[in-house]
Design a binder for these strands. Structure first.
Lengths: 297, 297
DNA sequence: TTCGAGTTAAACGAAATTGCAGAAATTCGT
DNA sequence: ACGAATTTCTGCAATTTCGTTTAACTCGAA
């Protein structure tokens, strides 16, 4: 090969430009200046021999090649971030930042009290929550620990099953007064239903286990678990939510518990290389005990 | 945070020092000088606040913390390498380097003719073989394409089952003349057997499917498939090898085909992000057709 | 149209990084 | 025991890289 390997820093610049679609914006994000970013991109294009962005006055548009190379740069970045986290947490005591991946509803309604208790026990701990229904890749180090409702199948993971959560149909009392109480599964067709917009792994698992679920029409569709949860609470209609969660709300009533009672597993997963890391170990154990306590209520 | 994020280049230097156990050797490996490497390590230790290496005159010994952080740096490096590979192969035609992971026996005995044919069709292709029984992690980009004899379970992989390979007991004619032909499975106890030293996934899968395999004692043990294969060819004794492979050797005879006939699947796996990459696409398809042709013989 | 906010691109001086040599110390082999 | 060969460290010069500034351009709103 003629030219030497490119500076690894160039990849960071490449990624920033790819995200911001502009040299100036990328420079602001990296605390650099626009000319340096321009030089970095030039250097990469020079080293690889093809264009990465088509320049224009209103920004830079990535080429096919740039999009092709983006995933590599992203995992590189994820690993630098993970490296920083473990570096800040090295030592005998548990301190540093732990990045936790969970669904929105779990992260917003269940995790906070558990994490608060952990924080009291280990004041050096800090938390980053990545809340989405798209499962993050633990092997890519997008997160340190994941709380999932589907069984993790990847290798090289420490997995612990915590138990099962029950999902049930719920509605606000006011809605029941207004629209009546469904007496059977077929009655649901005449109600205001709250459901999902796009398919997620959790939903696919659910659909396959509830007969007749395909025929239902949702009047309120949202990707966000939280939005659905709020919709149920505000009396929009009937939706699916965790039984343990709904029980804490005095104004919610469960509907058709005998017909609809879906049980999903709850798993905790962590990369096995993090097992010896104090901060991750502490959070893993803390989450395990805290979440099983929640499940038992 | 007080300090800025460290230069990504420092990670490369860190990795080199970790491997070479010496600043000077690392400098030679990276085409840098020893003082710069020293400064890089200093910078990292400064940024993280703890020592990475204990200095001595006969080199640098990594601390626990350094070993803890090593895996991150390694996946970063793996991704930069993969990035370079795809960058060099971007374009309409299939060219560039493809890194293939396979078992030793497959890589040494089966792949070469298939790759030679591929090379004739696409003169721009170059190949890197990673031959080991420890399966590489495709998600970490240790390899582009993997030929495996256990079913890949990781997500985000393009997997194609090519067929099955038959494993059978074989020995050289001369050995049979010398030691006789075993007439039953129990006769094997009185023969010179060739087998594995340590456990590998393929072996575990095999053991569980061959009754009585635990009782056998191997007089020739080697991790290397090749070494076993050579031992069988040289008349050491009786060993397990692929039926299709042994059939090409005139001096090998198959033993107890009715008692011992193990069929293993053969899979081809690739990261799904590489599907659109011409060079990987071409090699994946080429391997698929070439290997199925081998299986059908 | 005209002004303002946004962008990229080029030139020059400053700052940071790197390489080069020399010195000191240690291990290995004779 | 003594010299040869590796190490790592320390200053100083050279190179590379970065930031500042200026110019040219596009788009949208007043």
């Amino acid at each position: 090969m003629s030219a030497a390997e490119p500076d690894w820093n160039l990849y960071r610049s490449f990624l920033a430009v790819l995200r911001e679609r502009s040299l100036s914006a990328a420079a602001r994000a990296l605390n650099l200046t626009q000319p340096t970013l321009a030089r970095h991109i030039d250097a990469l294009e020079d080293a690889w021999g093809f264009e990465l962005f088509t320049r224009s006055q209103q920004g830079l548009a990535p080429t096919e090649a740039a999009l092709e190379l983006a995933p590599y740069a992203e995992t590189i970045e994820a690993n630098t971030a993970a490296m920083l986290r473990t570096a800040s947490g090295l030592g005998a005591v548990a301190k540093g930042t732990v990045r936790i991946s969970a669904s929105e509803i779990v992260g917003a309604e269940i995790l906070p009290p558990v994490l608060a208790e952990l924080r009291q026990r280990y004041p050096g701990l800090e938390f980053e929550l990545v809340l989405s229904n798209a499962i993050d890749n633990l092997l890519r180090r997008d997160a340190d620990i994941a709380v999932r409702m589907v069984e993790p199948t990847q290798e090289a993971l420490v997995v612990r099953k915590l138990g099962t959560v029950s999902l049930g149909l719920h509605a606000h009392k006011d809605y029941i007064v207004r629209a009546g109480k469904p007496a059977s599964f077929n009655d649901l067709a005449h109600h205001s239903l709250i459901g999902f917009d796009r398919e997620t792994p959790a939903i696919r698992a659910m659909r396959s286990r509830v007969p007749g679920a395909e025929t239902l029409h949702f009047a309120f569709r949202a990707d966000s678990d939280i939005a659905q949860w709020r919709a149920v609470q505000s009396g929009f209609g009937i939706g699916i939510c965790q039984v343990g969660l709904a029980r804490r709300e005095l104004n919610l009533v469960r509907l058709l518990p005998d017909v609809f009672d879906l049980k999903l597993g709850l798993w905790l997963a962590m990369h096995e290389n993090l097992r010896a890391t104090p901060r991750c170990r502490a959070v893993f154990d803390g989450l395990a005990s805290g979440l099983t306590k929640y499940l038992s209520v």
